[in-house]
Nucleic acid binder design. Sequence first.
DNA 1: AATGAATGAGAGTTCATTCAT
DNA 2: GATGAATGAACTCTCATTCAT
Lengths: 217, 217, 217, 217
Amino acid sequence: MQVNNLETLFKKTLAKSKLTAKQQAVLQVSLNLFSEQGFDGTSTSEIAKAAGVSEGTVFKQFKTKAGILEALLNPVLDDVLPMAAGEFLTEMNQSDLPNFQQLLQYMIADRMKFVLENQKQIRVFAQEIIRNPKIIQTLQVRAAAMIKGEAGDFLQQYKDSGQLVDWPSGRIIQYLLGTIISYVAPQVLLVPTKDFDIQQASTEAAEFLARGLAPQN
Amino acid sequence: MQVNNLETLFKKTLAKSKLTAKQQAVLQVSLNLFSEQGFDGTSTSEIAKAAGVSEGTVFKQFKTKAGILEALLNPVLDDVLPMAAGEFLTEMNQSDLPNFQQLLQYMIADRMKFVLENQKQIRVFAQEIIRNPKIIQTLQVRAAAMIKGEAGDFLQQYKDSGQLVDWPSGRIIQYLLGTIISYVAPQVLLVPTKDFDIQQASTEAAEFLARGLAPQN
Amino acid sequence: MQVNNLETLFKKTLAKSKLTAKQQAVLQVSLNLFSEQGFDGTSTSEIAKAAGVSEGTVFKQFKTKAGILEALLNPVLDDVLPMAAGEFLTEMNQSDLPNFQQLLQYMIADRMKFVLENQKQIRVFAQEIIRNPKIIQTLQVRAAAMIKGEAGDFLQQYKDSGQLVDWPSGRIIQYLLGTIISYVAPQVLLVPTKDFDIQQASTEAAEFLARGLAPQN
Amino acid sequence: MQVNNLETLFKKTLAKSKLTAKQQAVLQVSLNLFSEQGFDGTSTSEIAKAAGVSEGTVFKQFKTKAGILEALLNPVLDDVLPMAAGEFLTEMNQSDLPNFQQLLQYMIADRMKFVLENQKQIRVFAQEIIRNPKIIQTLQVRAAAMIKGEAGDFLQQYKDSGQLVDWPSGRIIQYLLGTIISYVAPQVLLVPTKDFDIQQASTEAAEFLARGLAPQN
DNA sequence: AATGAATGAGAGTTCATTCAT
DNA sequence: GATGAATGAACTCTCATTCAT
């Protein structure tokens, strides 16, 4: 089974960490507040009050306010995203869906679900990306590695079997992401609406991408 | 000729406004600082110093720090973006490019140029969109109106002539934007690199979109 | 006829002064605003806006904000109050009311009317007295002079004729003022109510004072 | 024994409160500065410096500058004044002074002492009453209740025994207060002079009031 | 005489951070 | 480990006042 939910993963990570219950509360509460109000819009005293701890406790473990943000984003950057991506590709490989469009749809639905289930973290991420371009560089480096490795190999199979246009893997993934983002961005940026239909959205997106990425006869 | 450059337009707007030179300097400097450091990361004393005016002057005209941001974003939201979009469609209609892919390429190149020439404003916009979901709602409403109107009529021509798949105009524009964004986002979010090749990027993007949006035979 | 209304007097003084219409507007508006919001609670830009003049104009004539206050209070302190008091005593002397209690009532009614008709100035005065003890000293000095002079002579007549207790004039006037103030203070300090009945109040007060100030048989 | 001294009472209240020594210092110092310079004339940095604390400390407890004023006035309004008044009447009842004039003198001396011992608080009160009419309304309501209750009963005894004119209690108390105020106002408003003779003043005032409030034979 | 843009000192307030308990 | 009082620098904003036009 796939790990789609960063929140669950996040809580498991917290539980495994040596952090006390109070420190974990600080992280949990900070995630929510940063997501809703932004990093700059959230004060440490607000965090302390919402977490039910003293103002000193907030700093005991994380030293600075930025330290809290790091503690929130680093595990995502270091462990969760790669792990989730790894598991994702593994599963894709095992899925053995013969039709490329069907595969695309499954894939897209899966990633959309991932995004929608982890809106809070992603919103914090999005804020931080704009504040701090270094993050996007890190992401680019990792993405490049993945494209050269597993993801590239994965796509190669479909190129070889004549179901996928022979463009560089990076370009293909770029269109894939662009299309997915065009669906989920409004959901993530706006107050989330419950009426988003993943099934229909992924079907539409897969239809478009399958055409756009089909080899020219 | 098309108005592509918000900066020029912005300066013309400033010149036409009844703002004094110092007040204009405040806006100009605020745009740069907000773009580089974010709204929260920029202090009003920093603005005053960079604009070469006193702190009092900053507030005399714009009342609050948020007032400066409004003064920066409102003209863009109210006048410049619609105007630019309107002129853009007019020109598209006049261009009379027979081939849909060529049209796409021209269009994409044009919009990429627009984005790259106005990175500062767009970066401030992007920040504010994440801070304040109301903006995206406004944009959605305006986009919906445009899709129902001019833009829809424009696309209809190509649907009628069998060069464009008969999907709702909103869906088509969504893919268009998603693809363009997949190219320009890294440029805008990262420190801009000079080696971005609009010609190649627009050719690639048009190629992909032309396939994805072609009617099924 | 008696000059009871400082407002009229104030406007006449303004008209006689060499002040331009705008400068007069500044004074008029300042009186109202100081009375309603207090001196510290009123900004010079507020005055300028309410008077319909520029901010510079406010300072052209009066140099400082305190200068406006002085311009408002000095004529009252220097001319109006003594003049009004002088006219008052003259009239009292002419009135030739045989009965002391009737005289008291007339006097009290007259002074109550004076206070109620000039609430604004008096409120500004009251504020300033608390801020600035020097004013009360000035008043004390003037009162002492008046007691030694005209007012003392006036009271002496009634002492001589056995209608007034033979206490020092200062003491008598103190009780007179204390009693009047006990009636008008709530009117001046609270938002003024229209249902204050001068006739009844002065009758009551005169009744009390006539008893308290009657010579012991 | 009677609680005459708000300052002592104030300090006891402070001691009982959960405020730290520094927070208590802030209140103590604010009382002095507000009394001397007025609320608007005292800056929070001035308070901080005089209290020997940082500026942050001033706001940690009291949130706003107005919060300090409230913290100073509320206990007086809510607890101290009613308590002092209650104790006062109790003692009056117990005193069993046969002669009304003697009673008056004792009473007046007592209240004068109260005012003179608590000049600072009363000066702050006076300022605030002029700034904020709501306070006087509160006072009026409380006074009305007291007149209907204990104070009214107390005066009734003397009306019944033919020592006090049969006027409404409110009117009687009004003259009482007016007369007392005519003595203490200059003391409170001016820089206090030490040569005020309570004994003589209360004897004089009682003499006047006893005459004014005696039943007509 | 009048304007109003500009000033800059200082106001009240916030906030991340420290440290003795 | 946790507390929370205390800090003080920095922040946004106000204001009386000036001065070139």
